[in-house]
Computed example of a mutant assay.
Amino acid sequence: MSVVLSKQDLREVTAFAAGCAEVVLAIFEADQPDDSRPRDAVGAAWEFARGGERGKVLRDTAWAALRAAKAAETAAACEAAMAAASAAYCIRWPRPPRSNTFSVRVPERPSGRTRRR
């Protein structure tokens, strides 16, 4: 199954992801106070969500936030940096050539299995 997202839809998804990541940035910053890479990734995600273009800055800040996650000393700080990386990486979902829509594969749950909580 795939879901087709317009650029505006993708901006909204990115805004949601950036908002979620912002909530937990303090956890990372308490662990690594001199490392701004996750905050930079969230900032780049917000820029796209507010009308900016997709591009190298988003990719670079997402990868930098992933490297920051590896440097974190606690699992919580690592997850916070991963949330920031995910926010910036939201925009990299595949796009069909010459199109303003994005196609995202959504894995289907196997039948008969329930979701754990």
Rank of each mutant, 00 (worst) to 15 (best):
Arg92Leu: 15
Met1Phe: 13
Thr101Phe: 11
Ala77Arg: 00
Glu53Cys: 03
Glu47Met: 09
Leu66Ala: 07
Val57Glu: 13
Ala26Asn: 14
Thr101Glu: 14
Asp40Thr: 07
Val57Asn: 10
Ala81Cys: 07
Cys90Val: 10
Tyr89Glu: 12
Gly51Pro: 08
Ile27Cys: 04
Thr101Pro: 05
Ala44Asp: 03
Glu47Arg: 12
Val104Ile: 12
Ala75His: 08
Asp34Leu: 15
Ala80Ser: 10
Val23His: 13
Ala75Phe: 07
Val106Asn: 06
Ala71Trp: 05
Val13Glu: 11
Cys20Met: 11
Val4Trp: 08
Ala80Trp: 00
Ala44His: 01
Ala44Val: 05
Gly51Tyr: 09
Ala77His: 01
Met82Asp: 00
Gly112Trp: 02
Asp31Asn: 08
Arg37Thr: 01
Ala41His: 01
Val106Ile: 13
Ala76Trp: 07
Ala15Lys: 15
Ala84Met: 03
Ala69Lys: 00
Ala84Leu: 03
Gly52Glu: 06
Pro96Cys: 08
Gly43Pro: 02
Ser111Asp: 11
Ala68Ser: 09
Asn100Glu: 14
Pro107Glu: 09
Thr14Met: 02
Phe48Ser: 02
Ser86Glu: 11
Gly55Val: 07
Thr101Met: 09
Cys78Asn: 13
Ala18Met: 08
Phe102Met: 06
Glu79Asn: 11
Pro38Asn: 03
Ile27Ala: 06
Gly19Trp: 04
Ala15Gln: 11
Arg115Asp: 10
Ala77Gly: 14
Arg39Lys: 14
Asp34Phe: 10
Arg54Glu: 13
Gln32Val: 01
Ala15Cys: 12
Gly52Pro: 02
Phe28Gln: 00
Leu10Val: 06
Ala85Trp: 01
Arg92Phe: 13
Ala77Pro: 02
Ser2Asn: 15
Ala21Pro: 03
Glu47Leu: 12
Asp34Val: 10
Asp34Thr: 15
Ala75Glu: 09
Ile91Lys: 03
Glu108Met: 15
Ala80Asp: 02
Pro110Ser: 14
Trp63Thr: 07
Arg67Leu: 14
Ala18Asp: 04
Val23Cys: 10
Ser103Leu: 11
Met82Gly: 01
Ala45Phe: 01
Glu73Asn: 14
Arg54Val: 12
Lys56Cys: 10
